[in-house]
């Protein structure tokens, strides 16, 4: 049994305390609507002036109601049966009324099923339908790779990485997407050979896909110049290989940001 407090963990605990103490909690009040941004920006703060200015530019007023409502709806959907609007006593329905209610529900469902089955072309499994089209995505490279040297011939827009470098790519939908999606990377080397693979990525509740981590872990690319295209599809609809990407895009089962990303993977310096 070890009773001695560990000095390293103590130092980390102190750092955590400092972080909590310096937290600018007044900005919480701005986002909730209890105080104005101007008032908080003008009041004394524990945090540095640069940070205070950054928060003032970011938090200008209360969180929009639509943002809160959207998050609540997603939460409730994940919880299952809908919550009541407010706590109310249960209402007991006589048995004969319950039967007639359920009968009406069954009839409505049967009619709806008949419509779906008998109207041609309304629903074909595996094919995109009106209202079901994939939205457009953009790709942003947040990492900057290695610093270029004066002798490099690589254009400044092409970032260079080693296999151990951290890469950070964000693939964002044009508007929030709650449905699940899949991501594939179409990688083309300097000889024109193309490979399709699934990267290591995370997906936010709003559909933003993030590739973040060591290059050799999240994007298995060998040394050389690469042109990367990002293929977003519905679950189970991703193209099987590089040759199938064009057909998937034409069929509307996949979408791809228009501008590919160029990068170079260099061997580590000795």
């Amino acid at each position: 049994m070890n009773d001695r407090p560990d000095p390293l963990l103590q130092a980390l605990g102190e750092l955590e305390r400092d972080h909590a103490r310096d937290h600018p909690g007044a900005w919480d009040d701005v986002l909730i609507g209890r105080r104005s941004a101007a008032e908080v920006a003008a009041s004394p703060a524990h945090n540095e002036a640069e940070e205070q200015a950054a928060l003032a530019s970011l938090f200008t007023g209360p969180i929009p109601a639509a943002e809160v409502d959207g998050l609540i709806e997603r939460t409730l959907a994940s919880w299952g049966p809908a919550l009541p609007a407010s706590p109310t006593p249960p209402v007991v329905v006589p048995l004969f009324r319950r039967r007639s209610t359920w009968t009406a529900v069954v009839v409505v469902l049967a009619v709806a099923a008949a419509i779906l089955l008998w109207l041609p072309g309304l629903w074909v499994p595996g094919q995109p339908q009106p209202g079901d089209m994939l939205v457009a995505y953009t790709v942003v490279e947040r990492s900057q790779g290695l610093q270029a040297t004066r002798t490099d011939n690589v254009p400044p827009t092409v970032h260079r990485y080693q296999s151990s470098s951290t890469i950070h790519l964000v693939i964002s939908p044009e508007h929030g997407v709650t449905e699940a999606t899949e991501l594939r990377v179409l990688a083309r080397d300097h000889d024109g050979h193309e490979t399709l693979f699934e990267p290591v990525a995370t997906r936010s509740a709003e559909g933003t896909i993030r590739i973040l981590g060591r290059l050799d872990t999240v994007l298995p690319l060998g040394p050389g110049r690469w042109r990367l295209s990002f293929v977003v599809s519905r679950p189970g609809a991703s193209p099987r290989d590089a040759a199938a990407v064009t057909d998937a895009l034409a069929a509307g089962t996949a979408t791809m940001p228009p501008d590919p990303l160029e990068l170079e993977v260099v061997a580590p310096a000795n």
Partner: peptide, 27 residues
């Protein structure tokens, strides 16, 4: 099971999360 109050709770929690995320990311 209180849907009306859930909105207020979420707003309060989200405000704390946003400021903490912003501060952590800025630092």
């Amino acid at each position: 099971g209180d849907r009306a109050a859930l909105t207020e709770l979420v707003c309060e929690v989200l405000a704390s999360i946003k400021v903490e995320v912003a501060v952590s990311l800025f630092r």
